[in-house]
């Protein structure tokens, strides 16, 4: 039975790769997206088979999962269908944020079970990266939507506070990886990651947001691959690695198309917004 699930995961991965490849040219792009969606359905179905075979969640586990997934699907489909075309970029950023948030929660939940070091290390990195993409993408969505000022918001001390927070995050992460932690330490780790995301994106101008969203998208892919290491699940690893790498290349292409360099964008302070924000 495990072999069937692994083969289904392989089929899903093939669909993801083929789908992305078909998206390189406009005539086949829409079909490519549907191939990718079919792969996703296979991956989710195979995972359901896997968990049922392993005994499955308890009744309350099924219930909370079903309620969460149902509500999330309604929210996703509804907002995906009804959002005006002009507001799509911030919607993509919002979807990216919730993906990162889910990655954080899965990693944090595994850390609460006091796992071994081979799980702790990817889980810590997952919580850090996923937390940054969650809050960073929310700020990016806010800037694109006009609820956060699109102009670069300069912080006192420039990039120094972000680097200090990153150093603190790595320090706390190291303590977790060394198995010296409680639930409160995990909360501090997630809090540091969220603060890095907010303070990292605020100084970046609204005009650079598409590139930032793409960069954060690549980060979410990496976080999902790390979740795959935590759960020892191959489809998460392969899909996450695929998104991390292709998202990175895409970020480079987008920055090149705008005649901007990625380091310049990340350091921020450029422009006064994209004109659509007041």
């Amino acid at each position: 039975m495990n072999a069937v699930v692994q083969l289904a995961y392989l089929a899903a991965a093939v669909c993801f790769v083929t789908g992305l490849h078909l998206m390189n040219s406009p005539p086949t792009a829409r079909f490519g997206n549907r191939v990718s969606a079919a792969g996703m359905a296979v991956a989710v179905a195979a995972t359901l088979v896997l968990v049922v075979r392993d005994g499955g969640p308890s009744g309350a586990g099924w219930l909370t999962l079903a309620i969460g997934v149902l509500a999330g699907s309604v929210a996703g489909v509804h907002s995906g269908r009804r959002t005006p075309t002009t507001a799509m970029p911030q919607l993509v950023s919002l979807f990216n944020a919730v993906g990162g948030g889910a990655a954080v929660l899965v990693g944090a939940h595994d850390l609460l079970d006091s796992p071994g070091v081979a799980v702790r290390v990817p889980a810590v990195l997952d919580v850090l990266i996923g937390g940054v993409t969650f809050s960073g993408s929310l700020i990016a969505a806010g800037k694109l939507h006009g609820v956060v000022p699109g102009r670069p918001i300069r912080l006192p001390g420039g990039s120094v506070p972000v680097f200090l927070l990153a150093a603190a995050g790595l320090g706390v992460g190291g303590a977790v990886a060394a198995d010296r932690y409680t639930a409160w330490v995990l909360l501090a780790l997630a809090g540091l990651a969220l603060a890095i995301g907010v303070l990292g994106v605020l100084p970046i101008g609204g005009a650079d947001m598409p590139v930032v969203v793409s960069l954060l998208n690549a980060c979410t892919g990496t976080a999902v691959a790390l979740v795959g290491f935590v759960l020892d699940n191959t489809v998460l690893v392969v899909a996450g690695a695929l998104v991390g790498a292709s998202g990175g290349i895409l970020t480079k292409l987008m920055a090149d198309a705008m005649n901007r360099s990625i380091p310049d964008i990340v350091l921020g302070g450029y422009g006064t917004g994209d004109g659509t924000t007041p």
């Binding site: 991956a43 892919g221 998104v243 987008m254």
Partner: peptide, 25 residues
């Protein structure tokens, strides 16, 4: 196609749903 492609890769990392299902166990 840059933005649609970004959105497509964004959807693919939604495979973390499989992680959420596994986590329910």
């Amino acid at each position: 196609l840059h933005t649609p492609l970004m959105s497509a890769t964004n959807a693919i990392h939604g495979v973390v749903l499989a992680g959420a299902i596994a986590m329910a166990v």
